[in-house]
Simulated scan of single mutants.
Amino acid sequence: MKHVHSSRPTFWQICFSVLAALFGVQSEKARARDFTQGNPIPYIVIGIIFIVLFVVLIALAVRLMLFIAA
Rank of each mutant, 00 (worst) to 15 (best):
Q13A: 07
I41N: 04
M1C: 06
L64E: 13
R33G: 03
A61H: 08
P9N: 11
A20T: 02
S17I: 05
H3M: 12
Q26W: 00
R33F: 05
F11I: 11
G24T: 02
V62E: 05
R31G: 06
R31L: 12
F54S: 06
L19D: 11
I48W: 04
L53D: 07
A59W: 01
L22S: 12
F11V: 14
A61C: 15
V55D: 10
F50M: 10
L53E: 08
A69M: 05
Y43T: 03
F11K: 11
F67T: 06
Q13M: 12
L19W: 03
M65D: 15
S27N: 07
F50S: 01
I58R: 06
R33C: 08
S27I: 01
S17G: 13
A20K: 04
R8N: 01
V45Q: 06
L19P: 00
E28I: 04
Q37R: 12
L60P: 04
S17Q: 02
I44T: 05
F50W: 00
A20C: 12
A59N: 13
V25A: 03
F50K: 03
M1N: 10
I48M: 11
M65R: 15
L53A: 04
A69T: 12
A21K: 01
A69W: 03
G47P: 02
L60I: 07
